[in-house]
Design a protein around this nucleic acid. Structure first.
Lengths: 349, 349
DNA sequence: TTTTGTTTTGCAATCGATTGCCCTATTTTT
DNA sequence: AAAAATAGGGCAATCGATTGCAAAACAAAA
């Protein structure tokens, strides 16, 4: 079978003995074409199986109603929710969504961003990879007059729109909650410190301790414990201390909290009695473990919607040099069994 | 600030006193241009902050190296894994990925497919929405010479490439496992029967019962119990029977299995001793519940890769009328505690 | 030196839709 | 009835990159 050519407006024009321009106007429902002609064109187009060519149209109109999204991992709950939220909004606006994942690699992130710039997308939404690297590629985006919105993991120095979580505050509240539950030797599992979000979470932890006059102990802070395995390792080490912690705040993720839970349970440690555990992200599994894990919800779907709305409300069609806005979302501590050793606290799970 | 125009090959040509065609050739690394010229063009392009315009290029070349994916929900673990798997492959091939979600709605699915056809994508990968509806939109895709790969939830009658799970076999094996564990009154939670996958799973269930001469009882089969809530409802009903089941196979999803687990646990029923529970999909949480839930793994990431590879190996650039292939993946039963009441079985979790 | 062959470059059409401008009917106004 | 306004439609340029063909430049061979 010969790959037959698609029907174009010229084919329709030829068949109806019209000019292509009239066909175009009819199809775009312009009022500069007679109602009868319009109907005829529409009918014929349907008969001829015509499909509008978005590439040609976008080229001529000089805009591409598409938004590119770059995330570290598509299949991470937080990010897939963000994407779902964004899609919800962009779909209604008739925009397309191009999705890329950096796999936490800087080089790959650069590749993805360049591909999106080549596509002349209207906007790029990005949460940067954990791997360090220069951010010229992001500056490039701006230089090419493409809108840029950073979310969650952002490059602070870059003057762009940002949608972030108030990590410090959330962290502060989580640790405060632990203190209120009577925990005093609270350990911290930290994420890669080149990412702002993890530095902020550490800040919140420190602030809460200081506020309650609890000494900050170096031995209770574990760097780079942001996977289940690393969390488990760190826990084994912490629990082996002469003076072990009575609570562990896995500020990196619920996965590392899971590692904590497994190691502690295997050692026969009572949770929450002897050890409190708090995670971060409100992964679905946190309410299913036994005991369920106290964590921090980031409202990911609604955050996705917020991001997309930011584009449509503040940027679409407007001048380029609007003052970048920073939207900060306050995450919420979800108290569950893994930290509840005082009975009069309201249960959320 | 005036929205300044982007640099084009004409700008470069003008500056270097060359023809645009030469610039184009230099940029595409054609061997029909002098090495020195090529270097000069590349250098100048970089200086002028030139970015290739994919829209123009695709229009001229008549192809768009982009694949569209339509799934019911982006943030469902199975689907986000499929997407991650597809992305892994398409990224390496320099293809873009446009993602849409139908939200299980037929009308929205049609919209998404049309948008992708307008984009003249090279291939559409789809898992159809639960909501019934005609599938002319899929036929349209084929009529427009766009490749179509269906996966997981497919329209059987449509002669396209398909990547499916052998649901019947998986289901058969799961039920056989239950029987081997000594369960005899095995209930089935069914999904919407307009979807093939759920019909197939029911078939597997029936086949296993027949094979072992176990009577098939209408009262043990619950229609449309495919969410956690509906699963819980069905379970309450089943356990209220005069002669309740000793096992429940939630063939719809792990979420409904979770509903089963909660209701049974609340009633003080011993699992797996008094009731066996088996889910479907191997959601991450299934190994975290107590007891952990036996389920069926669908190898979602690798399935995504398989789908993408199918396009590149069998379809890209080839004639349109190649014989559609159907790839069937055999899912694997993951035996966990919720069904293990005989000790000599190998543990997977 | 002339002829032939090979590089290198330019010209111009093309992909398909859009749109400013102009022209011709037709209708409305005076 | 003449003038003005409006509706409907056509022409042709345009968006930016690609590519077949032709021309020019240069090198090699006779």
């Amino acid at each position: 079978m010969q790959r037959q050519k698609r029907t174009t407006i010229y084919d329709i024009a030829l068949k109806l003995n019209l000019a292509a321009s009239s066909v175009s106007r009819a199809l775009s429902n312009s009022n500069k074409v007679n109602a009868a002609t319009k109907a005829l064109v529409l009918k014929t187009a349907a008969e001829m199986n015509y499909q509008h060519n978005a590439m040609a149209s976008n080229l001529r109109k000089g805009n591409n109603p598409t938004i590119g999204v770059v995330v570290p991992r598509i299949n991470q709950f937080f990010f897939s929710n963000i994407i779902a939220g964004i899609e919800e909004v962009t779909y209604k606006k008739g925009y397309n969504l191009i999705i890329c994942q950096s796999n936490e690699l800087h080089a790959r992130e650069v590749d993805c961003v360049n591909a999106l710039v080549n596509q002349h997308v209207s906007c790029i939404i990005i949460s940067i990879a954990a791997e360090n690297g220069p951010y010229e590629h992001l500056q490039q985006v701006l230089d090419h007059q493409i809108r840029l919105i950073q979310f969650d993991r952002v490059v602070e120095e870059l003057d762009t729109f940002k949608v972030i979580n108030n990590n410090e505050k959330a962290s502060y509240e989580a640790v405060t909650h632990l203190i209120e539950q009577g925990y005093r030797r609270i350990a911290l599992l930290e994420g890669p410190q080149q990412l702002d979000i993890f530095r902020q979470r550490k800040e919140g932890y420190l602030a809460a301790l200081r506020k309650h006059n609890i000494p900050v102990l170096e031995e209770l802070m574990c760097e780079n414990a942001w996977t289940k395995e690393l969390g488990a390792e760190a826990t084994a080490q912490l629990l082996g201390l002469e003076n072990p912690p009575d609570a562990i705040f896995a500020s990196t993720s619920d996965f590392s909290a899971l590692g904590v839970l497994e190691v502690a349970t295997n050692k026969g440690i009572q949770i929450p009695k002897d050890l409190g555990i708090c995670g971060y992200s409100n992964e679905p599994f946190t309410e299913l473990t036994s005991p369920s894990i106290t964590t921090i919800d980031q409202y990911s779907i609604s955050m996705g919607k917020t991001i997309a709305n930011l584009y449509f409300q503040e940027m679409e069609g407007l001048e380029f040099n609007v003052e970048p806005k920073i939207v900060s979302i306050k995450p919420k501590v979800i108290v569950r069994k893994s930290t509840q050793r005082i009975s009069d606290v309201n249960t959320t799970a």
